[in-house]
């Protein structure tokens, strides 16, 4: 039984093709402003490369753009999809922290049923999201792929008190003016995201095994500071960005069995 999970995020579109509960192929690409087209292109491509037709698969969409594409048989929110996807990688998962392009969320999973029992999501603001990291990387003129690695070299992370992206940007500039190093400022930025997200996660009682996913999970400094804030080790799946797409595809499997 083949199902496809299509996760259209605000920045990145992810597609996972599953045969029963095994992922056999995937696609990851920028969503761009024309995310409908990107979604369709990636979908057509993954079918073609695997010699499949539309009728051979069941499609579940999730993410920010889940209601905008017409290839889906059904749709589910990224909260439910991430809870399911986290258990694909770690069946014993207790909680999930997902930091994506424009939002971050914490999820607690029921041990008994594997369903979501509580969740929190950031309010309408970029604090504690991938976007915050992007804006700060830009201000520091460091490529986004390198900023995490660089931050880990800091011995004395700068204190960034503002959680607002706009204010934090001017805070970064004034830190520069006071002579703080790029490395220390970068570390401060990562700490600030971790503090914000960990605070939200603690409010709903997250615990181990905690699965860290979403695009920002690829950043090792955010992971390290999250572990410091939470006081325990957290785990990152092999494909952190695909968690939602895989979860959606798995829910598609469940739907078909019904």
């Amino acid at each position: 039984m083949k199902t496809v999970g299509v996760d259209i995020g605000s920045l990145v579109t992810k597609i996972a093709l599953l045969d029963d509960s095994n992922m056999i192929d995937y696609r990851i690409d920028r969503s761009t402003f024309d995310f409908k087209r990107i979604g369709h292109n990636l979908f057509d491509d993954i079918l073609e490369k695997n010699n499949l037709k539309r009728a051979d698969v069941y499609v579940m969409s999730t993410g920010y753009g889940r209601n905008s594409i017409d290839i889906a048989d059904d749709r589910i929110t990224e909260i439910t999809a991430h809870a399911k996807g986290a258990q694909y990688f770690y069946p014993e998962a207790h909680s999930v922290i997902d930091i994506g392009g424009q939002d971050s969320k914490a999820i607690v999973i029921s041990k008994k049923t594997g369903n979501v029992i509580d969740f929190q999501m950031n309010d309408k603001c970029a604090a504690g999201t991938g976007r915050f990291l992007e804006v700060m990387a830009h201000a520091l003129e460091i490529p986004i792929e390198e900023i995490g690695e660089l931050a880990l070299n800091s011995k004395k992370p700068a204190a960034i008190s503002s959680t607002c992206t706009v204010f934090a940007e001017s805070e970064v500039i004034s830190l520069f003016a006071r002579g703080a190093s790029k490395i220390d400022i970068a570390a401060g930025i990562h700490k600030s995201i971790a503090r914000r997200v960990a605070g939200m996660a603690k409010r709903i009682g997250v615990g181990q095994t905690l699965v860290f996913c979403g695009g920002v999970a690829k950043n090792i400094a955010v992971k390290k500071y999250l572990e410091i804030e939470l006081g325990y080790e957290i785990v990152t799946p092999k494909y952190p960005q695909l968690t939602g797409a895989i979860g959606a595809a798995l829910i598609g499997q469940d739907n078909m069995k019904k």
């Binding site: 929110t77 990224e78 979501v116 029992i117 999501m121």
Partner: peptide, 23 residues
């Protein structure tokens, strides 16, 4: 939910509310 009269957070609220309903 904490919000105001603007519509800029509508799709985010939709996600949160739909996830709550799925839960």
């Amino acid at each position: 939910i904490t919000t105001d009269y603007s519509s800029e957070d509508e799709s985010q609220l939709k996600t949160r509310i739909q996830a709550f309903l799925e839960m």
